[in-house]
Amino acid sequence: MNAAPVSVALSARDVSLWYGARQVLDAASLDVASRCITAVVGRSGSGKSSLLRCFNRLNDEIDGARVQGSVRVGELDAYARGASLSELRRRVGMVFQRPNPFPMSVHDNVGYGLRLFGLKRGAELDDRIEAALRVAGLWDEVANRLDDSALDLSFGQQQRLVIARAIAVEPEVLLLDEPASALDLAAMLRFEELLLQLASRFAIVLVTHNMQQAARVSRWMAFLHEGRVLEFGDTDAIFTNPHRRETEDFITGRIVSGD
């Protein structure tokens, strides 16, 4: 819980989460630095995705979910009374584990968020869609099939499409929930390159259970264990010198199993 980064895009303090009577997160605290990747690692069921969903209040949509603690995005207090959900979610984008394009055209998929916030048809909309697709590295592939259904794209293209969709509204923070878990190794490495490019523009929170990936791309790392943030700090430091046994077990266990 040390090492506050230079510029903090999102800071979570003592976030606890219950699904009904089951506590999923226990006073998790985390700072997400601007313009770099913060990895959240941990075993399955340690609450990584749940923590992510606290940042954009997507847990609100689950019946029986209850959140305590505070999350601040810039000056915006996410859990303040009367806080605007849509503003929060515009500023905190999210990409899910499996690509989930809407059943509409590529153009409309990327333009979806922009239209929600009042940008109707016109040159500006098209420009921003193109820009988002370029950043996601998809523009060259789909430039002349913008009106095709997004469901006809390949898996990898869909993955980049949903990233383009998320960044089209220019969020400050981008939450990635195990986005590479379904990719083969070559595709994953290409995807990591894209992540590093994106990190030059956004603060990225990357949930992964792949330690090598975390080591390769992230600047900061948080280790989650049974709903607690056991360790948070510089990625290299944690890898070379973990403070907690659990962290060490996890890291070494992973390395030994050769995942």
Partner: peptide, 9 residues
């Protein structure tokens, strides 16, 4: 979920 995460009500 994706629509909600993009800020849709």
């Amino acid at each position: 979920q994706a629509a909600l995460a993009l800020g849709a009500t």
